[in-house]
Design a protein around this nucleic acid. Structure first.
Lengths: 320, 320
DNA sequence: CTGAAAGCGCTAACAG
DNA sequence: CTGTTAGCGCTTTCAG
């Protein structure tokens, strides 16, 4: 018996009832044999590693996502390479190439700023399964998994209007990012429809804690009359909370604040944050599943998933 | 010219002024050549990947650490494999073995529960550089990077006593973990010394948000008279905060609360959390540096680093 | 079903 | 300084 037979046995390419198979498995166990993934990867041209490329893992939504992704990936026999690209487009592409060089088995990307159609094609041309965490342009060759961003924005608009707020602000990141763009579109459209007289200011900055802090400061300085604030994600909302707190502005007494994501920490904020819930664990699971299926050639066309959202009311808003 | 020459040129094992070197580099650029790390890893027997093994990346301290580690690692030409082992000892060792199989270039471990002397030896026997995020038993063959846990506990003890609290509680994880053990030891010792009459209750549970929540609930039920609480990390403190909030207990009016870690989010809690600061970015950098040095054979003996801590006063405590 | 042989892309030991 | 050769550990034709 030689090693090719052993290889076949270990990989199940041999009759399951075969005597040889048993002997190989037995010997492997006895010798405590552990296959070297590098040898395998070299000949196969790909690894069982999933790359997760985000701008900053400290964004609590990304943290929760990473956890879910790692867990699912591990169960499916993959491991997780974590990359923080920041907001720099070049650095993003540089990371991307490095991951390709490493022959990752799949990629989960949250590109900020996002790519154009040509870049989508280019990425797809790499041949490795890619899942985008945002909606793609129509006909994109890449898989996408995201939530109903537009609907989320609408929910917040309806809610704040219903509470009687008429001077609103939206604190967001780059509107070039499809997720943020959709949240804003849904919010604005709803507000415009429900209360056309409503005053609506848009502030853009970093989509993280710091950015939220800075934007809230700017808001207090230049638009002190605003009573309802929609932060495009919970990280921004947390930053805003801190800034309001520091400035002596009471939430929800002086200003009502709504976030987006419903990260675990939203409930510990001061006060507990009203926010749009998206099912992060399911999103992570779905992304891994798509990659795993592609890996096993059980999937060829890109798939597009969109999870529904809901508003979870806590204590950061009140009627006016 | 053949490929071994090219290999040497690319790896700088050739006179920097050599004509050949120039030609190789030029050709590589022109052909857009990208070395395949798998081929290299296979022959070298190791990769430029660092494994980070923690119980849960959602612990905000670990999130901050992961960010720092990834950044430093990337600069040093390494990438980061993230593993969440949970609290299960077997799963930990299983992850550990899997990482060895993958020929990682180094490992950063936050084992919970921790290993005994024999296991330290066993891990060291694997031959790959390992950095523990906790103090090791004397004479451990593994490198360690941590903070002055004992001193941190003392600081909190001094502080709460100085504020006049005499009914104290400590909310922590497994005391088998050296970090938690040291924090508790420092705290208790100081309290016992400064105010021997002081009542001191110890609660153990999960060292995360949920655990903090549960422990605070238990505290309210069984020890409602406690006025000063020291949480062994910020995640526990956040959970406790939520539980207190839910129960209508005012912080700091009814209870003073101190955390440990000083994660970014500590400032947004309600109220902003008084906590022990440890320099997470420096810790992450140091861990990567140790591994990188080992990788380049510029280091053979294990190194032990301990960073200093300080108490940052915010608004979660008051004098009694 | 099994063995022999080739080769994935790279580095290193050894001669020239 | 350069080329030749061998081999890292694995999978996969291709014959037997």
């Amino acid at each position: 018996m030689d090693i090719s037979t052993a290889s076949r046995a270990l990989n199940g390419r041999i009759g399951p009832r075969s005597k040889v198979r048993e002997r190989v498995l037995e010997a492997a166990r006895r010798l405590n044999y552990r296959p070297n993934p590098l040898g395998r990867a070299l000949v196969l041209g790909r690894t069982r590693t999933i790359g997760l490329l985000v701008s900053d893992i400290r964004n609590p939504f990304m943290t929760d996502l990473a956890r879910a992704v790692e867990e699912t990936a591990h169960q499916a026999g993959f491991d997780l390479l974590l990359c923080n690209s920041g907001l720099d487009r070049d650095k993003q592409m540089q990371y991307f190439s490095a991951l390709l060089d490493k022959r990752v088995g799949g990629l989960i990307l949250n590109f900020v700023p996002p790519l154009d159609r040509a870049q989508h094609q280019q990425i797809a041309a790499s041949g490795i399964p890619v899942v985008l965490l945002s909606p793609a342009p129509r006909g994109s060759p890449l898989s996408t998994v995201c939530c109903e961003n537009l609907r989320g924005g609408e929910l917040v608009g309806e809610y704040l209007i219903r509470l009687g707020h008429r001077r609103l602000a939206h604190l967001t990141g780059s509107l070039a990012h499809p997720n943020f763009a959709a949240r804003w579109r849904g919010f604005r459209r709803t507000v415009r429809t429900l209360a056309p007289e409503c005053q609506l200011v848009l502030l853009r900055g970093m989509h993280d804690f710091q950015g939220g802090y800075a934007m809230a400061q700017g808001l207090l300085r230049h638009h002190p009359h605003v009573t309802g604030v929609f932060a495009a994600n919970d990280a921004i909302a947390f930053g805003a909370l801190a800034a309001f707190h520091a400035a002596g502005v009471k939430i929800p007494d002086d200003v009502s604040l709504v976030g987006f994501d419903d990260v675990e920490l939203a409930s510990i904020a001061h006060p507990p944050l009203t926010t749009v819930h998206q099912p992060v664990a399911e999103i992570g699971r779905a992304a891994v599943e798509i990659i795993s299926r592609h890996w096993h050639n059980a999937l060829s066309a890109p798939v597009h998933l969109r999870f529904s959202v809901s508003l979870v009311e806590r204590d950061s808003c009140r009627a006016i």
